[in-house]
């Protein structure tokens, strides 16, 4: 079942005219409530440090990019870590999940209900609970404080959810095509690559987008399992930047804006897929 975003026609207004004005005012007020703080943050990046203190509401006295450049220099390294961890873990998570989902929907596996329960059951387990033992495990593996630790953990903790999404999608795919391929003598591996994977493209894109959002913003693991500046990702890097050059608030505002920007852009570019992923994840 693919979700159709086509909306039912609304020939007549739902809300009576009297109420409509009020509702619009309400929606508009909520919009301001959401956007103004973000705008304030972005503008703060243009202000001088003393203007932030003396004139919090005013527009910047000048539109100098100096703070943004400073913010960029301070976050560049974290940005790189975030980029690496996000890209690699997205790739591993979605690949492993697609592969697993195929196995779970298209092949015979002994004890399949148990396997399904085990993998999808991982969704119910909270990362907080695993924290203490993971410290020791990662130290024993020698990957504490490394990108590999984050990539492994992001993959392990997101494979259940991602598999769940892809599996649900695959269950709804018609079987005629892979049956036909089977008749033509295609192996399961070929069917996976040539038939099913291309058909799953929409849900795969949704999963990629959802995982990017997760990995770019993850804080708990990144905070506890990394501590070198060269390894820390943006969410943690921003807080250490705060404590390192905390008195330059303008640069902190700029850095916050810089780190939020990529993900907001990705959201707007991929809204459609994003919404599908979210609704399938929770609505099923």
């Amino acid at each position: 079942m693919t979700m159709t975003m086509a909306l039912p026609s609304r020939s007549r207004p739902f809300w009576p005219a009297m109420l409509r004005g009020m509702l619009w005012a309400f929606l508009f007020a909520m919009g301001v409530l959401v956007l103004y703080p973000l705008l304030w943050m972005a503008l703060g990046g243009f202000k001088s440090n003393s203007q932030i203190f003396s004139d919090p509401f005013a527009l910047p006295a000048s539109w100098s990019l100096e703070n943004y450049l400073a913010g960029w220099r301070a976050t560049r390294g974290y940005m790189l870590s975030s980029l690496l961890v996000t890209l690699v873990s997205t790739l591993t998570t979605v690949m492993i999940s697609a592969w697993t989902a195929f196995g779970l929907t298209r092949t015979a596996i002994p004890g399949k209900p148990l396997v399904v329960g085990f993998i999808l059951g991982g969704m119910m387990l909270s990362p907080t609970v695993a924290l203490v033992p993971l410290v020791r495990m990662l130290q024993d593996l020698g990957i504490y404080d490394s990108h590999a630790a984050l990539i492994l953990l992001y993959t392990a903790f997101r494979v259940p959810f991602t598999t769940f999404l892809i599996r649900a999608y695959m269950l709804d795919l018609p079987r005629d095509l892979d049956e036909a391929a089977m008749m033509d003598g295609a192996s399961p591996g070929q069917i996976f690559r040539k038939v099913i994977l291309p058909l799953c493209q929409p849900i795969l894109i949704s999963c990629v987008v959802l995982h990017i959002l997760f990995a770019w913003n993850e804080y708990l693991f990144a905070m506890i399992f990394t501590n070198s500046p060269g390894v820390q990702t943006l969410p943690v890097g921003l807080t250490s930047m705060m404590s390192k050059q905390g008195t330059n608030f303008a640069a902190v505002f700029a850095a916050m804006t810089i780190s939020a920007l990529p993900i907001v852009i990705i959201f707007f570019l991929t809204q459609r897929y994003f919404i599908r992923g979210l609704t399938q994840g929770i609505g099923k």
Partner: peptide
Amino acid sequence: SMRWVAVALGIVGWFVYYP
């Protein structure tokens, strides 16, 4: 036939269930 799910079982078992 377990090859399809082995990676997921391994990584989820090792890093989610075991800890």
